[in-house]
Each structure stands twice: as structure tokens, then as C-alpha cells.
């Protein structure tokens, strides 16, 4: 059974699971199905960060316009899932063995596209979750349900995979930010 995390919890991923290589990071959410107004366009992204918490190149920012990292270690599967329902809304695949040595962590985020124009925020989004599946066995290893009720934020840092010595661990963050994807990019050192 998958481990269910609470906010702030950190768990081992590869310790006790040393052959873990290909993982699928699934992100999902529900938007209120009220009528009227603009549709929601939520985007998942992954930031590959160095020890200083910043990207070393703009290409370390994997998102809908940069789907595959040059190392082949992180691949965004694009916005091609059915949406509504129990399943993931977006997926990002990670090959832990290919992550370059100078990358200390991979941070996963969800942001609302054109949130200002559409006057949308995460107060209108519910049941957000992140889960990690071992692609080889198909087993779900970790699940973090962001039970936190977000308010007027337009970006959420969901969680991060980080190195701990030779092992990989996961940290359930679940923090909201105003300023959308742009503010996250600036924080992580991506040139926007």
C-alpha cells in the first residue's frame, strides 16, 4: 500500500528499494464544476535544481514548452490525459539513474495558466494530490493529498525529490504562492 504523506513529511524512496529506476510522478486536482467563466488550465512542471536551490540552465525547467530534459532523466508527458475523475491530470516521468550528478533536487509544481486574466486561484481548486508510482512494478509508492485549503494563490509547490547521500527521498511541501508560474521561475533562477 502506498504511504500517505502529510504536509512537511519526508520519506525514503530508494532506501529499501535500491533498484528503483523509472518512476512516474502523477499530479491531479479537481476544479469546481460551476458554470460560467473561463475554463481552468492547470500546468504541472518540474524544476531540476542544484545545491543552491536554483537551476543551472533554463533547460532545467521542464514544462509544457520543454517536455524532455537533455539528460533524458525527466520527461513531461504533456497535457494529454482525460482530466476529470480519479486519475492523474498530468504526469512526469523520472529516471532516477539518469539525473545528472549536479542536480540535487527535482521540485514539482502546479500553476494556473493566465490566472490573472481569468481571475482564478487555487481557492477554486480542490483535492490536489501528487503520487509516485514505480513504473517497473506499477505499484504506487507514495501519495500526498494536499488537504490544505489554498486561498488566493496561483502557484503551488507540491513536493520535491531530493538526494540524501546516494539515496533519493521525497518531501511533501504543499505550499501556495501568489504570482503564478512566473514567480516560481524567478525564485528558481529561470530567466523569464
Amino acid at each position: 500500500m502506498a504511504i500517505s504523506l502529510f504536509k512537511g513529511q519526508r520519506v525514503d524512496l530508494t532506501k529499501g528499494n535500491p533498484n528503483l529506476k523509472n518512476i512516474l510522478v502523477g499530479l491531479g486536482w479537481d476544479t469546481k464544476k460551476y458554470d460560467g467563466g473561463f475554463d481552468f488550465d492547470l500546468d504541472a512542471a518540474a524544476f531540476l535544481l542544484g545545491a543552491n536551490g536554483k537551476v543551472q540552465s533554463d533547460l532545467d525547467f521542464v514544462f509544457y514548452n520543454n517536455l524532455k530534459h537533455s539528460s533524458g532523466s525527466v520527461q513531461h508527458m504533456g497535457d494529454n490525459l482525460t482530466g476529470a475523475g480519479e486519475g492523474d491530470d498530468e504526469q512526469i516521468k523520472v529516471d532516477l539513474t539518469k539525473v545528472p550528478a549536479n542536480i540535487s533536487k527535482i521540485t514539482f509544481t502546479v500553476t494556473i495558466h493566465e490566472a490573472d486574466v481569468r481571475k482564478q486561484n487555487f481557492g477554486q481548486v480542490s483535492n490536489a494530490f501528487i503520487r509516485i508510482v514505480d513504473e517497473t512494478s506499477g505499484k504506487e509508492l507514495i501519495r500526498y493529498d494536499l488537504g490544505e485549503d489554498f486561498s488566493v494563490e496561483t502557484a503551488v509547490v507540491v513536493g520535491e525529490l531530493y538526494r540524501n547521500g546516494t539515496e533519493w527521498k521525497f518531501n511533501a511541501i504543499g505550499s501556495g504562492y501568489k504570482g503564478g508560474l512566473r514567480s516560481l521561475c524567478l525564485d528558481f533562477g529561470v530567466n523569464v
Binding site: 458554470d35 460560467g36 481557492g123 485549503d149
Partner: peptide, 25 residues
């Protein structure tokens, strides 16, 4: 729209408010 879902007051550990402010068809 002909209606507005204005606010919700709901239980989640404690009582909370959500400013929905969404139109309803």
C-alpha cells in the same frame, strides 16, 4: 449566468469560509 454561488461555510476540521463567487447557469 442567472445565479451566483456566493460563499460557502463548510466543516473541515473546523468551520471555514470559501469565497466561491461563481456564476451558475
Amino acid at each position: 449566468e442567472r445565479a451566483i454561488i456566493s460563499i460557502e461555510i463548510y466543516r473541515k476540521d473546523t468551520w471555514r469560509i470559501g469565497a466561491v463567487a461563481a456564476g451558475f447557469d
